[in-house]
Design a protein around this nucleic acid. Structure first.
Lengths: 137, 137
DNA sequence: CTATCTGCAAACAATTTGCATGTCG
DNA sequence: CGACATGCAAATTGTTTGCAGATAG
């Protein structure tokens, strides 16, 4: 039994070939693909795969907290297998999205908000836009 | 001549009643409304106002850098007259969006990214989710 | 006057939904 | 076998566009 199969069953959802494929597609890349990209990537190997199934699977995986949805300001959502607290660096030239750890910063920032405002911070989404290494050369 | 009229003309766009209305609607609230909300807010006073005009005006104002578009993870964009560097606090209960200054934090964070990675940070969008004062009572 | 803007309706793109059929466990 | 998942097509939602008529400057 594959890792994906086991993970899906642990979350009490059926381990169908489509779900395993979508799960693996997301977990095998750090590119933060959107639904369309995942669909086009899987289509050659799964010719009967439907875009609606990709969307339904993404919704299910999100609800199981196996992936997280991110929005870097594009017209579609991207998906990330890393569900821990971290920020995203977005290259405004090539649109590449990469990860960066933020736990230290946000421990401090949230502490500051707690003591200076009446807002109780719980979690955050941080998008830092700029130019990546490849594009700045 | 109103303030709005002057500002629009300074940006070389015609100061139509619709544009003045949309401009004022955004500049008179800190609620970060979306297009639909602005439209419904203006409709009683401007019965002929069209949603398409609201969208076109928002696009124009954004291009003139008179407003900024923000995306707190909802299905529509919100608009903010504050175009300076700042973060947003989003109440996960009542969906209220408020502002908080972040310039000090992000001076440090961007410095750290510059020295530790090959990414050149330029600007950021920070969304901090939690519970606001009213909802925590 | 004329370049630009408005308002309508139609077009679009991302995502969701209903339902008949298929399949995992 | 039965509950749940897939795949198609149609529906929905937020947003954009084309164009004829209106208007700011």
């Amino acid at each position: 039994m594959t890792n994906a199969t086991q993970t899906l069953r642990n979350n009490n959802i059926k381990a169908t070939p489509q779900r395993i494929a979508v799960f693996n597609a997301i977990y095998s890349t750090n590119k933060h693909p959107n639904a369309e990209t995942i669909f086009r990537y899987l289509l050659p190997s799964y010719p009967s795969m439907s875009l609606a199934t990709v969307y339904k699977t993404l919704k299910t995986l999100k609800e199981c907290k196996l992936i997280q949805e991110i929005n870097v300001g594009e017209d579609s959502f991207r998906y990330d297998f890393n569900i821990t607290n971290h920020s995203h660096l977005i290259c405004i030239n090539c649109k590449d999205v990469s990860d960066i750890n933020n736990s230290n910063w946000f421990k401090i920032i949230k502490e500051e908000i707690r003591s200076n405002t009446s807002f109780t911070p719980l979690y955050e989404q941080v998008y830092i836009y700029g130019v990546c290494n490849e594009c700045s050369e």
